[in-house]
Design a protein around this nucleic acid. Structure first.
Lengths: 218, 218
DNA sequence: AATATAATTTAGATATATCTAAAAATTTGT
DNA sequence: ACAAATTTTTAGATATATCTAAATTATATT
């Protein structure tokens, strides 16, 4: 039985491995875990003893197969609980992370399974991140700017670079919200404005706007 | 911020105070917490430092006002989660305790409030125990045998003394289940058989049966 | 009231997860 | 390739929650 701390480290290592090819080195892990490098070394050794990571001195930590499976299970729980909080308990997308950080450590396979069923086997959490299924499989998305999206492709709106009220009010007006699917219909090479489709509506947005929207694609 | 362990002690002290007038002495707490008396002394001192219990050497622990409020909040969460598991996630009443022991420690006032609302402000958990409201108020029930119930009074079926399959099948047959409300309509002094009403049906049950059913009354 | 028994506390140890400060290894820059 | 800078590890300390064994206090018995 793993402690909360061990599970949190596995999750952090998993995310770092997704992001950087060289995996999770001690300093980046320390930053992510908001702790000191020496604490990371201690914990990584413990995880290595439990065969959850492969660790060689001065060479960072890499998840073993079972470490990866464990990390994915925790992430699956985190994201399912986020869906629950937003869909069933009227939370907004920005309030759920902290609570899900707690709920993700509840140990019961049946609970996770039943929660998944109750929520209708959702594929994405309220932030658009994919939810691993019971076997641990999930699709990896690519995060980029809307302006980088090719014609005909679509993605989920994941966040904004510029979070000024003015910009957010503008997004509201053209019916773009977090989690919304946006597809690129046309691109005007003259001014790089983009015609998009979202919610079955068409809008033409400026390059500036498209440069401020993060999009997650399959 | 209290640790899980501190919260569990507060809960245990609360339950012991409800049950025994002399409150929670070290040995009974140790038995309840499945730990050693010396560990209990250590923890009780810590809780006393935090003003959650009043403690004088060799005189057991008594919850302070704030300790009592904290204990009730934990119990409220425990019982709300039990309702959630049974009503929404298809768990049966005997599977939920262990998971609720974990969920009761999740810290978020809004979560508890929204869960309560989502469940329709239930008054009892799947075992018939009362759920404190947001202010910490709840009705105290009395646990006794159905055979001790007076004519005209009613109660909730809480458990069976004899849990043999034969007996349980019999209960099924006359439509008595855990959580069911049963009222006593008539008592036959000749053989102490009892006429009861449950689910809008009337049944006459023997004294032996009535002696094997635990009933919770207001 | 003295003594035996039971309950409780203290003292000292172990586990976990953290820390600081110092040492060691690796990487970088010239 | 060597010194400097950076990264990582080690050693030793602290916090929490537990334990065992011994000491202390309270309760029960005669």
């Amino acid at each position: 039985m793993l402690t909360f701390s061990e599970e949190n480290y596995l999750k952090a290592i998993f995310h770092l491995e997704q992001k950087f090819d060289n995996g999770a080195n001690t300093n980046s892990l320390a930053k992510k875990m908001e702790t000191k490098p020496s604490s990371v070394t201690d914990m990584v050794k413990k995880l290595a003893d439990k065969k959850l990571v492969n660790y060689k001195k001065y060479q960072g930590a890499k998840l073993s197969q079972s470490g990866k499976e464990t990390a994915i299970k925790v992430i699956r729980k985190h994201r399912l609980w986020e869906v629950f909080l937003v869909e069933k308990l009227e939370f907004s997308w920005d309030e759920v992370h902290e609570i899900a950080e707690q709920l993700e450590h509840i140990k019961s396979e049946k609970l996770t399974r039943q929660l998944d069923k109750f929520l209708g086997y959702p594929k994405r959490d309220p932030h658009g991140d994919p939810i691993p299924n019971e076997k641990g499989n999930f699709t990896v998305y690519d995060n980029r700017l809307l302006s980088e999206l090719e014609i005909g492709k679509s993605g989920i709106c994941m966040g904004v670079k510029d979070s000024s009220p003015t910009f957010l009010r503008y997004l509201d007006k053209i019916n773009i919200a977090l989690g919304e699917e946006i597809s690129v219909v046309e691109k005007e090479s003259f001014d790089q404005s983009i015609k998009i489709k979202t919610n079955n509506e068409f809008h033409t947005i400026s390059n500036l706007t498209a440069n401020n929207l993060y999009i997650k694609t399959l």
